[in-house]
Each structure stands twice: as structure tokens, then as C-alpha cells.
Amino acid sequence: MIIEIENIKYYFQIKGVGKPIICLHGFSENLSTWNLLKLEGYQLILIDFIGHGKSDKPYSRKYYSLKVMIKHLNKIIYELNLKKYSMLGYSMGGRIALAYAIAYSNEIDKLILESTSYGEAGFINRLKRRRKDLNLAKSILKDGIEWFDDYWSNLSIFESQRKLSKSITDEIRKRRLSNRTYALSNTLMCSGQGKFPCMKSNIRKLSMPLLYISGEYDKKYRHVGENFKKFNANIKHETIKGVGHNTHIEDPNAFIEVLSKFL
């Protein structure tokens, strides 16, 4: 299904019946990353971000900013006539979900963040990350989508995915290769971690129940999850054993069990 917001077409799917949960995918992914997610009594609303999946991929960078992404996401939800809903975000989608929950906290019932960041703390750290994102954006444009797939799949945070079945890794690769180089580049430069504001102080103000999920082998985001708990007593941190960064694909049954218990 398609919803058009300010001349940008967004693709989404609705699965199941019950309480609504908005599901947001990670960088270079699309809504099919949630294919194995099934929750009894919940309606899953899966959305392709701008520049990803079957949503529009405009050349203009202005549409890829965090401000516009948050505004358009809210308009999509308004068009779906949702007043109260939960939100689930993985990696980049988790950052967007966090920023959205801070902006529209009165609408969020529960917030679930999987392997995500609250933003780089400190000007120097943000500057370093911005340069790293810019260099990657340039490399994607220069070397192409197959180079990106090879580079991204060999990052240490995805090492544990090498034990997955070929059918699953082929699906992950298919999603990455379906991207346009300029759209990924625009995403990195306009809403990547280097451009994302540090939201540590905002986390303290969140009042809704919040679950942070990390994988046992993902040391960086396990540590981030512990920091989330320190910032806000409402936050619960669960670590799924035997998996890395993408817990919902590496062990979907364990992910569903943790998520269902929280919900």
C-alpha cells in the first residue's frame, strides 16, 4: 500500500489484527526484514523509509533529513488514523523511533529499540562520525552497490550472521543490492549517526515503558543498552544469547519471546 506525503510516496504493509505497532527497519534494509515477526494480538505496520525498499528515492537531499523523516512518519501515522500505538525500531530505525518518541511522546504506548544508538556524545565524536559517514557515502557512489554489500556484510557487528542459512543470507543480500547508491549516500549524509543529535538528556524525560534489545555478541550495543538503563528507570534491557547486531533475524523465536513478554 502507498501513502503520499508532500509528493513523496511511502510504501507500507499491515499484518495481523490487534494493538498497532509501527516497525522501522535499519539502514540499507526494507520492511521485509520483519517477515519472520509474528505477534498474536498485535497489528504490525511495516514502513519503508524514504530512499529504501519501495518508497520513493528522490535525488534531493532535503527529504532525507531527520526533521523531515520524523514529520513524514507522523503524517503517515495520522493518515492511518492511529491515536495510540507502540513503536519498534532496529538500528537506524531505532534511532528514528527514539527521536520520534521524544517528539510525540504522548502518542507512544510502548517503545522497543533493537541494537540502536542515542547519538554520539560530544562535538569531536560527532565530527569524527560525520566524516566517517561522508567517506562511506562517497565510496558507495564511486564503487557501487555490490562494493557496498561486500563492505557492509563484512563489518564485525554482522560476523555472527555468517552462521545463518544460505536462504536467509541471500534475502539480506537481496535487500542490500536492491538499493540505489545515491539514496544510501543521501541517507548517510543527512540522517546518519554523524548528523544525529545526542539524545542522552532527552531519554531521561521519556515516561513510556521502553525495552532495549541487544545481542550477546554485539559488545558495542550491549554497552549502549546498559547506558539506556542508567538514564531512565523505565527502561528494561534484554540481551539475546548467541546472536549479534540483528537479533530479530538471527534468532526470531527468541526475539519474539522477549518482545511478547515485554508487551
Rank of each mutant, 00 (worst) to 15 (best):
K84Y: 15
N35R: 14
I50D: 12
L73Y: 07
S65Y: 05
L80E: 10
M87L: 15
G16D: 11
E29D: 09
I77S: 14
E79S: 15
G16I: 10
C23D: 00
H25V: 02
L73S: 13
N125R: 06
Y85N: 08
K128V: 14
Y42F: 09
N81W: 04
E120F: 12
R95V: 05
L113D: 02
I108Q: 05
S55E: 12
P20M: 03
G51A: 07
S105R: 06
L98Y: 10
Y104K: 11
Y59H: 12
K57Q: 13
N7Q: 15
Y78V: 06
E114F: 02
L37K: 02
G41F: 15
Q43S: 15
V68F: 05
A103H: 14
K9W: 06
L88S: 07
K83S: 15
D48G: 01
A103S: 15
Y90H: 15
K9T: 11
K83I: 08
I112G: 02
N106P: 01
I76N: 05
I76H: 07
I112R: 02
M87F: 13
I102H: 13
A101F: 05
I5Q: 12
F123C: 09
G53R: 13
N81M: 13
E29S: 00
D56P: 13
L36A: 09
R95L: 00
A97P: 08
K9H: 14
F12A: 00
K38C: 03
V68M: 11
F49T: 08
L24Y: 07
K67P: 03
P58V: 12
G94M: 00
A99F: 06
I47L: 05
K54E: 14
L66S: 07
G122R: 10
E107G: 05
K19L: 15
A101R: 13
Y63I: 03
N7T: 14
K128T: 13
E6H: 06
N30C: 00
I47E: 01
S32N: 03
Y90M: 08
G53F: 07
S91D: 01
I22Q: 07
L82H: 00
G119R: 10
I76Y: 03
K75T: 11
I102C: 05
L37C: 11
I5T: 09
N30V: 01
L36I: 09
L44K: 02
N74P: 00
L66Y: 13
T33Y: 01
K9N: 10
Y78C: 07
E40M: 01
C23M: 04
Y78G: 06
G51Y: 09
S86Q: 07
S91I: 00
G94H: 11
E29V: 00
G51V: 04
Q43K: 15
H72W: 11
C23A: 09
Q13D: 06
N106K: 14
E120Q: 15
K15F: 01
G41Y: 12
L98T: 11
I22V: 14
K110T: 12
V68C: 09
K62Q: 15
Y42V: 11
R95E: 04
Y118S: 08
L36P: 00
S86W: 10
D48C: 01
Y64M: 08
L39N: 03
K67F: 10
I8M: 12
I96N: 13
K9E: 11
V68G: 06
